[in-house]
Simulated assay, not measured.
Amino acid sequence: MFTSRRLLVVATVVALLSGCANQNPYDASSQGQASNESGGMSKTAKYGGLGALAGALAGAAIDHNNRGKGALIGAVVGGAGAAGYGYYADQQEKKLRESMANTGVEVQRQGDQIKLIMPGNITFATNSDAISSSFYTPLNNLANSLKQFNQNAIEIVGYTDSTGSRQLNMDLSQRRAQSVANYLTSQGVSSANLSVRGAGPDNPIASNADVNGRAQNRRVEVNLRAIPGQQYGQPGAQAPQQNNQFQGNPYSQYQ
């Protein structure tokens, strides 16, 4: 019983220290710059604390002979890894909000995921997968961000409204997502961790019963997540490269 209590105390204390006193792993001169949530705790601190606690419990379970030592090691390792991505995402979110201001693109933060919602009025003409002229500026800004913060899993999802057949909409949404992927890679974004899919009329964000609602549903979403097993270091560090299936740069005139 005493051992269990001491284990819990060790795990909790180290988790709190790791979460609340975590240093910025990218910029030693920056203090507490991560965005705050409603409770006053930054995402960095939250991820660090939760990661440390999870690491402490895992470490204790692995080291049966010395649970206190195992908890301590697990907490430090788990806290550093989780807070590393938390801070990374905080900084990426901040830069994306700056670059997407006044472009019509909405930036959302959903836990450990950053979502960019690109509405139909700036992306593609009706029944077309050709990128509209108004779409190049936000796409260029996004490409620049993804080259600086190049340690994400990038999912590009195309959506349509409910007008027309489901098959037509599924095909169109897939082509639109692929057009965005082609353009981003043509601007130097690695395709190593990039995926595309068309969702057609699924998951509408507004009613398809009126013009405004259908316009909102005709959108492209870009989802940015952590790469499983990735060690998060300085933004801009080189990510592992793979053969790029998108060759050439047919869009260079828009840079």
Rank of each mutant, 00 (worst) to 15 (best):
A80M: 14
G84I: 06
G84L: 10
G84P: 11
Y85M: 09
Y85C: 12
Y85R: 14
G86W: 06
Y88F: 08
Y88P: 14
Y88H: 13
A89C: 04
D90Q: 09
Q91D: 12
Q92R: 08
E93K: 07
K94T: 13
K94H: 13
K95L: 11
K95W: 11
L96A: 15
S99A: 12
M100A: 01
M100I: 03
M100D: 05
A101M: 04
A101W: 05
N102R: 05
N102F: 03
G104V: 03
G104N: 01
G104R: 03
V105Y: 04
V105P: 13
V105F: 04
E106C: 08
E106G: 14
V107G: 08
V107M: 07
Q108G: 01
R109P: 07
R109C: 02
D112T: 06
I114F: 00
K115T: 09
I117Y: 10
I117F: 11
M118Q: 13
M118Y: 14
P119M: 06
G120H: 08
N121V: 06
N121D: 14
N121G: 07
I122E: 14
I122A: 11
I122G: 13
T123Y: 06
T123H: 03
T123D: 07
F124R: 10
F124W: 02
A125P: 06
A125D: 10
S128Y: 12
S128G: 09
A130G: 07
A130W: 02
A130C: 01
I131C: 11
S133R: 09
S134Y: 00
S134W: 00
F135W: 07
Y136D: 01
Y136F: 05
L139W: 00
L142F: 11
L142M: 09
S145V: 10
L146H: 01
L146S: 11
N150L: 04
Q151W: 12
N152H: 14
I154R: 09
E155I: 11
I156A: 09
I156S: 14
V157W: 00
G158Q: 04
T160S: 01
T160F: 00
T160M: 09
D161E: 06
D161M: 11
S162A: 03
T163N: 10
G164S: 07
Q167R: 09
N169Q: 10
N169I: 00
M170A: 06
Q174T: 01
R175A: 11
A177Q: 06
A177W: 03
Q178H: 10
S179Q: 12
A181D: 12
A181G: 07
A181S: 15
T185S: 15
T185A: 14
S186F: 07
Q187C: 07
G188Q: 02
V189I: 10
